[in-house]
């Protein structure tokens, strides 16, 4: 197991280097001149523009720019944005917000998704099953910004149950955005759980367990649920990876200063080092949580071994 994990972690290094090269190239290829855009309708004086270009190596051809970036990286310098803030500081300020939002979203997603899935599978074709089917279809089909503004208006403004925006209230600030963000995945989790549970119910070992006289709740939780977890865990793991990349829309609607907004601003203003720094981190999260999922497989299903 340890060897497996180590090998996978080592493999992330070439992936990260490849990803950073690709992302840097894409930012470089964006049309337009980032320095020209800094000043808007009134351009900076030509000498000042030249100075800023030199500071951020913008006049160099792509290979030179990228080499300078990697060289700085090897010396622990992750670069800085146009206002002189180090990229590490930006990530340090934004990451906690994104992590909190992810925790809350995944918590809701797992809790409600799995619960609804199990209940629906137990009462197949019942009113509740249909309710889950219809409500999940509805959630999946509403764009997240509509859901966000709607939830904000109804629960934040009209009813006043939740803060409207910002992070001033600690964890409470993340409840509503977390729910909104979770709503889409919640639907998938519910459906995945339901299908996997139904499949398990018709399996031989469940029949055996029933024949042995095992209690109903034990059959559901211990036998059927445990065996249905694999697809659900796969989905949630991948979801954590992508949620940590920042949810641009949800963060903007609820004014949460997370990674999503930072990356959006950086792409728009073509700040190569910022984009590469943050996106490479996202790629790393994604790889890492997929590894966690693989390890979890072995925990959930003892038949799976990596040695």
């Amino acid at each position: 197991m340890t060897r497996f994990v180590l090998r996978r972690l080592l493999l992330t290094i070439p992936v990260l280097i490849g990803a950073s090269l690709l992302i840097y190239a894409m930012v470089y290829a964006l049309p337009g001149d980032p320095v020209r855009a800094l000043a808007g309708d009134r351009p900076l004086s030509p000498a000042v523009q030249a100075q800023i270009r030199a500071e951020f190596n913008l006049d160099d051809p792509f290979p030179v720019q990228y080499a300078k970036y990697i060289w700085g990286l090897l010396h622990g310098d992750f670069g800085q944005d146009f206002s002189g803030r180090p990229v590490l500081e930006i990530i340090g300020q934004r990451l906690p917000v994104t992590v909190k939002l992810t925790i809350v979203a995944v918590f809701f997603e797992a809790l409600f998704g799995i619960a609804a899935g199990i209940l629906a599978s137990l009462r197949r074709n019942s009113f509740f099953d249909n309710l889950v089917l219809i409500s999940t279809t509805l959630l999946v089909s509403i764009p997240v910004f509509v859901l966000g503004f709607l939830a904000q208006f109804v629960f934040g403004f009209k009813l006043g149950w939740f803060p409207i925006a910002g992070v001033a209230d600690g964890w409470v600030s993340y409840l509503l955005p977390g729910l909104v963000l979770a709503s889409l995945s919640m639907a998938y989790v519910a459906r995945l759980t339901r299908t996997a549970m139904l499949e398990a119910f018709s399996a031989d070992y469940i029949r055996t367990a029933r024949a042995k006289g095992v209690g109903r709740s034990r059959i559901v939780m211990r036998h059927a649920f445990r065996n249905s977890l694999i697809p659900v865990v796969t989905f949630i793991g991948a979801d954590i990876g992508s949620l940590l990349g920042g949810a641009i829309v949800t963060e903007s609607v609820f004014n949460l200063p997370g990674l999503g907004r930072a990356i959006f601003d950086a792409v728009r203003s073509q700040q190569g080092p910022v984009v590469v720094g943050i996106v490479t981190l996202m790629v790393f999260f994604y790889i890492f949580f997929n590894l966690v999922v693989d390890v979890l497989y072995a925990v959930i299903d003892p038949r799976i071994r990596y040695d």
Partner: peptide, 18 residues
């Protein structure tokens, strides 16, 4: 000085008195 990215969010906040 409170920073926002969405004008609409700021508008809802001022409506609510935040």
């Amino acid at each position: 000085m409170r920073m926002y990215t969405e004008l609409s969010t700021g508008y809802t906040d001022v409506l609510a008195g935040n």
